[in-house]
Design a protein around this nucleic acid. Structure first.
Length: 284
DNA sequence: AAACCTTCCAACCGCACATGT
DNA sequence: GACATGTGCGGTTGGAAGGTT
């Protein structure tokens, strides 16, 4: 199937945007909202491709974009996330409140070279041996879990994003949908320890709250097992945990009980995760 | 001061997927 | 199910800015 061009290219302006064009685009989006990009140029009176309008909005004009130089912490986070997610710039960018373009540029112009100069393969994040081949390090279970966690969490974030798109005024920490138990865990103390890579000092209080969350998950699993949510269950190979994110019940009740505990065990697995610590000196 | 080189980043392009008809 | 259209994403490019010779 031959794909039609997104717009008629004749007479369309290309290149850098002028402040006047920015103002027209912002004004149009304020009136009509973002989306329907094909019709945006006409509505806004712009001689631009709809795609170009979208890109300008997403990468530059959109409110709440974090701009300015990257901090060492952000750079470290980008490297860690890239090790997990690969070139999924949009997913990485979402974690930092940056644009995918910024992350991509940072990686291609800075971090990639830095890793190469350190003898680390930027694609595999593993050290290159002297003969240029990649030396495989034993992958820890926590690293595998991390990727699975991240995938599941991204899906949950996407769901949450869809659900909360109508309430943009809400503060970020208030945007956590209390019905999404995965996100609640993610934003909990345990989740934070995973995100920051720092071992969490779980007080009895936090343990209690975590247990409460576990029970809530269990209740959710038992009573709303036919609804859409993320849950975890052990894989058969005993090597790790496989996440199932489906609309139907995936496991028997006994497995459910195991699953909810597994969620916590996974988090605790990550308490010691700091696979990228060897980079800290280089980045700092 | 000028030429050249390198770095950075905004923007473009094409592909893939989602959604509508 | 087939096709058309819209949208999002990642790869790439071109030019401006800064640095070096």
């Amino acid at each position: 199937m031959v794909r039609a061009p997104c717009c008629e290219k004749k007479g369309l302006k290309k290149g850098p945007w002028t402040p006047e064009e920015d103002a027209l685009l912002i004004d149009n989006i304020n009136k009509n909202g973002s989306g329907g990009w094909r019709s945006v140029p006409q509505l806004a009176g712009l001689k631009r491709c709809g795609k170009s309008c979208r890109l300008r909005w997403v990468n530059y004009l959109r409110p709440n974009i974090k701009r300015g130089p990257f901090t060492p912490e952000e750079e470290k986070l980008v490297i860690q996330l890239h090790a997990i997610l690969g070139n999924r710039w949009a997913a990485i960018a979402a974690q930092l409140g940056r644009t995918d373009n910024e992350i991509k540029n940072l990686w291609n112009t800075n971090l990639k070279k830095r890793l190469l100069s350190m003898g680390i393969n930027p694609q595999t994040h593993e050290p290159n041996s002297l003969d240029g081949s990649t030396k495989r390090l034993p992958r820890s279970p926590s690293t595998r879990h991390m990727a699975q966690w991240e995938n599941a969490r991204l899906e949950a974030e996407a769901r949450h994003s869809t659900e909360s798109s109508a309430s943009l005024q809400v503060k970020p920490h208030e945007q956590i949908n209390t019905t999404d138990y995965f996100l609640r865990l993610w934003h909990s103390e345990v989740g934070e320890s995973f995100r920051t890579g720092k071992p969490a000092c779980f007080s009895p209080v936090s343990q209690a709250s975590v247990s409460g969350t576990t029970n809530e998950i269990r209740v959710k699993l038992e009573h709303e097992a036919d609804t859409d949510f993320s849950c975890a269950t052990r894989s058969d190979d005993g090597e790790g945990v496989t996440f199932y994110n489906g609309v139907t019940k995936q496991s028997s009740p006994s497995e459910m009980e195991d699953s909810s505990d597994t969620v916590l065990h996974l988090f605790f697995d990550f308490r010691g995760y700091n696979d990228m610590s060897f980079l800290e000196d280089q980045i700092d």
